[in-house]
Every structure is written in C-alpha cells, then in structure tokens.
Nucleic acid binder design. Structure first.
Lengths: 222, 222
DNA sequence: TGAATAGTGTCTTTCAGACAATATGCC
DNA sequence: GGCATATTGTCTGAAAGACACTATTCA
C-alpha cells in the first residue's frame, strides 16, 4: 500500500492550560498574530513534528508558552471537522494541563503576539472552534476533580484545607459546606498534617498538610 | 504560513465494534492480508479522506465491515506514537460502537481477508498497538455502562430485566445479585413494562419492558 | 476586645449490598 | 409434580448533606 501518495491532513496539538489565580479558574489564551482569525484569542497549539510523540508535542507547546513542564498532562479529544480551519484540513488533538500560576512567567512565542489568562466563565469570540474545545475541557476538568487527586497539581508541597476547598469552589463555580468538605477530604487518607502551621497571617493560623499519593490517582472526592 | 510544505503524518480511524454474543462480550477483528503484520488480527480501520469528518470515516469503516450503521459512536482516544506503524508516521483516532450481533452479517472488505468476533477476555498477539487500544476501550466501555444508558443499544425494542442483567454481567465479567440489580434498574425510571410477556419459553414467562430515554443519557446505573 | 479565619459534631436520609423464599408456565 | 426461570422485601452499614458554634491569633 503506497499511502505516501495520498493527500494528508495537517495534525496539530492544542493545549488547554488551566490555573487558579485570584480564586478564579483561568485558562491561558494567545492572541493570534496572523490570519486566519488574526487578533482573536486562541488556545495555544502547533504542528506535530514527524519524529515527535503527541504528548511531547503538547509538552513542547506548554513550555514555549509558559516556560514550565507539566506534572500532569491529559489527552482530551481530537477535533477534525473538515471545515474547522479555513486554510485546509487540520486535525487537532487537544490536551489539558494544570499549572501553578505562581511559577509562570508568560512569554510570547514566535507566531503569537501576546498571551494572557482568561477566566473560563467569561470567554467569547475565540478563534476556530476553540470555544467548543474549551467547553469540553471544562467538563473533563470537573469530572477529573470529582474522581481524582488532580487538585494537588495546583498546590504547593504544603497547603491548608481551605486552599483545597477554594480551588474546588473555583473549578465548580459553587460553594461547599466547610465541615462536610473537610470531613470528606480527611476521610480519604491522602493528606497528612505536617508539624508546622501557617505564619504571617493576622488571624488564627491554620494547620498545614502534605499530599501522600500520586497526582491523578483515582479516588472519589466529591 | 505555508504549512502545505511540511511533511505530514497519515491519519486513520480505528473502530472498536463491540457486541454481545452467547452471553459474552465480543469485539470484531479483521485478519490482515498485507504487510506489516500480515496474518495477524487487527482492529478494523482505514484512512480518513480529506473531505470526510472523523465520525463519518468511522461510520464508513463500520459499514464496510458489518453493513450496519451505528446508533451509538464514541471517540475514544488518539494514538500517535512515532513508531507505532513500521510504514511511517500514522496517527489513529479510535472510536467505539456497540452493535446488535443479530443484525450483523459479516463481510470482508477489500484489504482484509477475514472478519471475526473475538471474546475480549481472550485476546493475544494483535497487530500494531491494538492490544493496548482494546484494553483502553474496555475500560471506557465499562465506565459508560456504569454511568449511561448504553446497554439499550444492544437490546431490541422490547426486552426483559434478565437480558439487561446478562449484558452487564458480560461487560463486567462478574455476577450481580438479581434482586439488587432489578431494584436499581427499576428505580432509575428509564424503562416501563409493556402489556406483553415473553412467549415460547418452557418456564415462567417474564415481563417485557421498553426503554424510555435516549441511548447514551447519563445516569448512575451501578 | 474586635476582626478574621480555623476548626469541629450530630442528625437525617439515601443508597449499596447481603441475603432466600415464593410464583408461574410448560411438560 | 418436576423443571426452569421470574419475581419479590428486609436489614444493616456507609456515606452524603443539612446545619452553627467555639477557638485562636493578631492588631
């Protein structure tokens, strides 16, 4: 079979980069510098190189945009409708990751003019079918937060229970009862208190905990 | 950006076709007629045409192998490791579907020599990375059976509670308690009895039910 | 002592899961 | 009556969810 002779679609990876900033779930978008959709905001992405695995390509895009490596990266879905890109047939494999926004210093890559964090609850007018991709990724993110220990990819080594709860409240965009939430988290046996407490706060300092487990482990949280 | 000038990977769709036959969960495999892996069994699939959406390509492959259209088709995962196909870079988007084996008359397509149903619990020595793909698809199938009404895509319009239970037992490869299972299914409010009972059986005939809802609806079943 | 956040327990309801006897139709 | 399968209810333990007050630190 001489499949080299057939015309082939282009293949890209897009990476949805989530973070929590100011108690709000945010996603990193880049402003397109070239047509099509010049001036519109888009999910960062780029072409997959011929000798590059898909996850490697996604990691590379992440690094180009943020300068950090993901400790969690998950393939989401592949979008390949014939007319999703006016330049021709482009099939994109979407990935998502979560980064700690403190560690990030945004830098513009070569073919984009700007990169910025956007609240996921206030998005509009994105390039391509990226709005649809983001809606899908938010569903997946919530699902992952219900069933896995993904939250710890957004926390420092030591953290408080309130910090966990605030992240959950940002991701689900709703409040949880403090007592029930803490009871549930503690019952999972995935965190343990450390011999330190919060410092430099003008109120009762809280107990610090550390995560014992692997990020992404399956476990019922909510 | 003249992205037409870059070398591009080939893109295929593979389709995992599940059915229940003889109270056993089976998957359709085809015997490869050509190299690489000539003579090995493989998941059916083929190249995506340039003017063809991904789901359409998957539906087409399904029709070529079985002659039926899917009433349920779901994208699973995209496999794209650099060396997964010795002929070159091939990225494959996998889909899964469930068909009623009564309706199927298998036919060989052009580039395969034979198609057969295999028990998912007895697979070995498949072509490419297809073993890995099947393991992944079984996990997803089970997940879907826990949380959705997918089972009804395998049943006729009228069915018995025992038929539902037997399908679940095949999919999860374990037995369920009859009383608890029926209690649970009935509590969901997604089926209703019809004014007929089973005929032509040499034992107490059972009540027939019909499904009220959409296949794939989310709902907690197990 | 006031401000700010940390930390904590009980009750009710729901659901999962264990468990066995009777009913019906056909031969 | 014997065979084969259908149908049915109770109890227990676990977990979810509603709900409000006290504790601690700092300024």
């Amino acid at each position: 079979m001489k499949f080299k002779d057939y015309p082939k679609p282009s293949v890209t990876v897009d990476i949805i980069i989530f973070t929590i900033k100011d108690d709000d779930l945010k996603v990193l978008l880049v402003k397109r510098g070239v047509e099509p959709f010049a001036g519109k905001w888009a999910i960062p992405g780029g072409f997959v190189k011929m000798n590059e695995n898909l996850e490697v390509a996604a990691q590379r895009e992440l690094r180009e945009e943020t300068g950090v490596n993901a400790n969690y990266l998950e393939q989401l879905y592949t979008f390949g409708d014939v007319n999703r890109d006016p330049r021709g047939r482009v099939i994109t494999i979407s990935y998502m990751t979560l980064v700690n926004s403190n560690k990030i210093k945004l830098k513009a890559s070569t073919d984009v003019s700007e990169a910025r964090w956007f609240s996921v609850y206030n998005l509009s007018n994105l390039a391509f079918d990226h709005k649809k991709i983001l809606e899908y990724s938010l569903k997946r993110l919530r699902w992952k937060f219900e069933y896995t220990t993904l939250v710890f990819s957004l926390l420092q080594k030591k953290f408080t229970l309130t910090q966990i709860q605030k992240i959950y409240e940002s991701v689900f965009n709703k409040k949880f009862d403090k007592r029930n939430f803490r009871k549930k988290i503690l019952s999972l046996g995935i965190i343990k208190p450390v011999k330190e407490i919060e410092e430099m706060v003008s109120h009762r300092p809280s107990q610090l905990y550390t995560f014992i487990g692997e990020i992404g482990d399956t476990i019922n949280i909510i």
